[in-house]
């Protein structure tokens, strides 16, 4: 009999102890719940959203001046190093000489036969030899870089943007080998001495990290158009590829367009009107 009552006492005492322990936590939860209840993470009110982001580049509207403008706008505001920039030797005394094969670029001018090697015909229309084709990350639907990345630093966002989490990049460069467009650059060295003026609105990168175009995800989140679109004087348009009413779908309906290395099946989201 004695044994049984002891067991009972312990049971009751145990439950009471749990109750006492949980009381402060419950109070805390209760005090949280008045007002706006739980903390939430939201998007900005004027965010630009799409089911699948895409880009249309009207090459006819581009010239060398605008091409330069576009690259400049993108690179200065994303703190992309420019290896032609003269290094301030007082601030960075131990800077090694530059190897130009190690350049870093997000969007740049390319010749037709490099951008579209599979479309180079023997007697190609003359104008194609001179047109500046702006090339950048194609934000592929079946992105090979995403499949190659061992740390998921590169991933496809739900809205189709192929984007990087620089924090996770271990610099293995599998993605660079996987990308058929050469859209990715590796930071072989600290980029800081080669950035003329730091833009505080975007971080720079450290040595040992791969980087590429992010379709200005940080600007779309604020409801602003990407830097290249603003600098392109109407030659570049971004929008929703899945929305038949969007401006870029209208452009694609009305014009003949090509994509880079379409036969590889990566489904690029960047279209060129030629």
């Amino acid at each position: 009999m004695m044994k049984k009552s002891r067991r009972r006492f312990l049971k009751v005492a145990g439950i009471a102890a749990i109750g006492l322990g949980a009381a402060p936590a419950m109070n805390f939860a209760a005090s949280d719940s008045h007002g706006s209840a739980k903390a939430v993470k939201n998007k900005n009110e004027n965010v630009l959203e799409a089911k699948r982001w895409g880009m249309v580049i009207d090459t006819g509207k581009l010239n060398d001046k605008i091409a330069k403008q576009i690259t400049n706008a993108c690179h200065t505001q994303h703190n992309v190093p420019d290896f032609t920039h003269e290094v301030d030797t007082e601030k960075f005394p131990k800077t090694r000489p530059v190897n130009h094969k190690q350049e870093v670029k997000w969007i740049w001018k390319e010749k037709f036969h490099y951008a579209f090697p599979d479309k180079e015909d023997e007697f190609l229309a003359e104008k194609f030899h001179h047109l500046p084709f702006m090339v950048l990350c194609n934000h592929c639907k079946n992105a090979p870089c995403v499949q190659a990345c061992p740390t998921q630093a590169t991933f496809s966002r739900e809205d189709g943007i192929v984007i990087m989490d620089f924090h996770r990049c271990i610099g293995c460069r599998f993605c660079m080998a996987a990308c058929p467009y050469g859209s990715r650059s590796f930071n072989y060295r600290n980029p800081l001495p080669f950035i003329a003026e730091l833009d505080p609105d975007f971080p720079f990168r450290s040595k040992g990290v791969v980087e590429k175009c992010n379709l200005c995800a940080e600007r779309l989140a604020k409801g602003e158009q990407p830097h290249c679109v603003e600098a392109a004087e109407g030659a570049i348009v971004v929008g929703d590829l899945e929305d038949p009413e969007s401006e870029i779908r209208k452009l694609l309906r009305e014009n003949y367009s090509i994509r880079r290395k379409q036969s590889l099946g990566t489904e690029p989201s960047v279209y060129y009107i030629v």
């Binding site: 706006s36 903390a39 939201n42 998007k43 924090h167």
Partner: peptide, 17 residues
């Protein structure tokens, strides 16, 4: 960081508003 980079959520509304 995961919210911003992966889910594109950039605004945090705390429990106190």
């Amino acid at each position: 960081r995961d919210a911003v980079v992966r889910d594109a959520d950039r605004i945090y509304v705390a429990a106190n508003g």
